[in-house]
């Protein structure tokens, strides 16, 4: 495995009781990449996430981690659950919980853990919210908090599951810019998204899943490929809508 490869997936398959969720998925993630995994609902994106995080083992094929990375050192930004939205915890408490993987069995946080949490809150511009209650924050501020927590858990790789779901356009833009700047600081990013149009603006590579990988390559290759063409310019429902979507894709 090349030295700058963080994750190497080879021929990974996983199926639930009846249906296959993933078949023959192979791809590499190199240091500095921003891989965007796209596909419709039920295309196996979430299954791929759980496999990458090591929560389940692939039934066939292999996932190897390079560059000193372990599965529990991936900074994970899961989708928010309903229970979280009214959770009484301070921002600091949430961010600190990102340090748990480094904690092991030791019961309490050290000064180093607290410093790391402070550093990442600073980096994401939420230091002034540190003592605020999580449930009182806006959607964008909550995502920043969870992103700071994810950064506490990793040095090298972030895994983002639908990071902009439920955010308004302004907060969405904000979050994408934040993700871009984190990547420029040297953190590799894997992002799962429905939103193909804007993800391609913030990705270097695309993996398009439909249980099987129907495309894997760089963004430019994707835009030029038949798959990309089909998904970036959807079949128009009516002429006006189609034109609008096409314009959006070109932008």
């Amino acid at each position: 495995m090349p030295i700058n490869t963080l994750i190497r997936c080879r021929d990974v398959s996983y199926s639930y009781e009846s249906a296959a969720a993933l078949r023959g998925v192979s791809f590499d993630v190199n240091v500095g990449d921003a891989l965007c995994v796209v596909g419709e609902n039920g295309s196996g994106k979430s299954t791929l996430m759980t496999l990458l995080l090591g929560l389940k083992a692939p039934q066939s094929g292999s996932i190897e981690y390079g560059g000193g990375l372990r599965a529990n050192q991936i900074g994970y930004l899961p989708q928010q659950t309903a229970a979280q939205k009214d959770f009484p915890a301070s921002v600091r408490e949430v961010v600190l919980s990102g340090r748990l993987s480094a904690r092991g069995l030791r019961p309490f946080y050290t000064r180093e853990d607290r410093a790391s949490a402070d550093r990442h809150m600073e980096r994401l511009g939420i230091t002034h919210l540190a003592n605020r209650c999580y449930r009182e924050l806006s959607g964008g501020q909550q995502q920043r908090t969870l992103l700071a927590r994810a950064l506490c858990a990793t040095q090298s790789l972030l895994l983002l599951d639908e990071p902009v779901a439920g955010l308004d356009p302004l907060a969405t833009n904000d979050l994408y810019q934040l993700i871009d700047s984190i990547r420029q600081e040297g953190v590799t990013i894997i992002m799962v998204s429905h939103d193909i149009q804007s993800s391609i603006r913030h990705a270097t590579n695309i993996l398009h899943l439909h249980c099987e990988p129907i495309f894997f390559g760089t963004v430019d290759q994707y835009i030029a490929s038949p798959v990309g063409q089909r998904f970036l310019i959807p079949v128009p429902v009516c002429a006006a809508d189609g034109a609008q979507l096409a314009v959006h894709a070109v932008q």
Partner: peptide, 20 residues
């Protein structure tokens, strides 16, 4: 286990992903 209980209560999937 206070901190781990907090983590598991707040976000089970994140806690699992970080090896709790």
């Amino acid at each position: 286990f206070y901190h781990k209980i907090l983590a598991v209560t707040f976000d089970e999937s994140f806690a699992r992903a970080t090896g709790v």
